[in-house]
Simulated assay, not measured.
Amino acid sequence: MIEKLIRNENEAIEAIKANMPTSGYQMLRESLDMAIKALEEIQQYREIGTVEECREAMEKQKKKRLVEWADGTLHCPNCEHDNTCLGFDVCVECGQILE
């Protein structure tokens, strides 16, 4: 079994910086600087969340009507939380915006 030497973007960035040529090799230095910048951008995107998480959050921003169950209670269309007596514009359980 081969041990993985670089486990994440931070370690990759540090390894690139530690092994950056100090003179000459201008194209290599510029390429490595671009690689570091790209890895840092990836880290920022990962902090925001996955594409699916972002889509889910955007969908919750669209107003949806409460669903009335047979017993007369009003429930969130997203998570089915009972919102009958709360009177909020947002579901307290999942954050769905409600009409």
Score class of each variant (00 low, 15 high):
83 N>V: 13
48 I>E: 12
78 N>G: 03
92 V>S: 10
40 E>P: 00
72 G>H: 13
56 E>I: 13
35 A>N: 08
11 E>W: 00
68 E>Y: 11
63 K>H: 05
19 N>I: 07
23 S>M: 14
1 M>H: 12
51 V>M: 02
48 I>P: 03
30 E>F: 03
18 A>R: 13
33 D>F: 11
75 H>L: 04
66 L>G: 01
79 C>E: 03
34 M>G: 09
23 S>E: 15
76 C>A: 04
87 G>P: 06
72 G>F: 11
75 H>D: 05
15 A>L: 14
3 E>M: 14
27 M>Y: 04
4 K>F: 03
85 C>W: 13
38 A>T: 13
39 L>P: 00
98 L>G: 03
86 L>W: 01
2 I>Q: 09
95 G>Q: 00
73 T>Q: 13
99 E>C: 00
44 Q>C: 01
60 K>C: 03
88 F>G: 00
74 L>Q: 11
33 D>L: 12
84 T>R: 03
95 G>N: 04
5 L>I: 12
37 K>P: 02
32 L>A: 09
42 I>W: 04
98 L>S: 03
56 E>W: 06
57 A>R: 13
62 K>R: 09
1 M>R: 15
34 M>W: 09
32 L>F: 07
80 E>I: 03
89 D>Q: 14
48 I>V: 15
80 E>V: 08
78 N>D: 08
57 A>F: 09
12 A>G: 14
30 E>I: 02
7 R>C: 05
41 E>M: 15
55 R>L: 13
7 R>P: 02
27 M>W: 00
67 V>I: 15
39 L>S: 00
90 V>K: 07
83 N>F: 02
41 E>W: 06
45 Y>R: 14
21 P>W: 08
42 I>G: 03
63 K>R: 07
11 E>T: 09
37 K>R: 12
70 A>Q: 15
73 T>G: 07
26 Q>Y: 06
29 R>C: 01
39 L>G: 01
62 K>G: 00
96 Q>K: 02
9 E>Q: 07
74 L>M: 13
19 N>K: 06
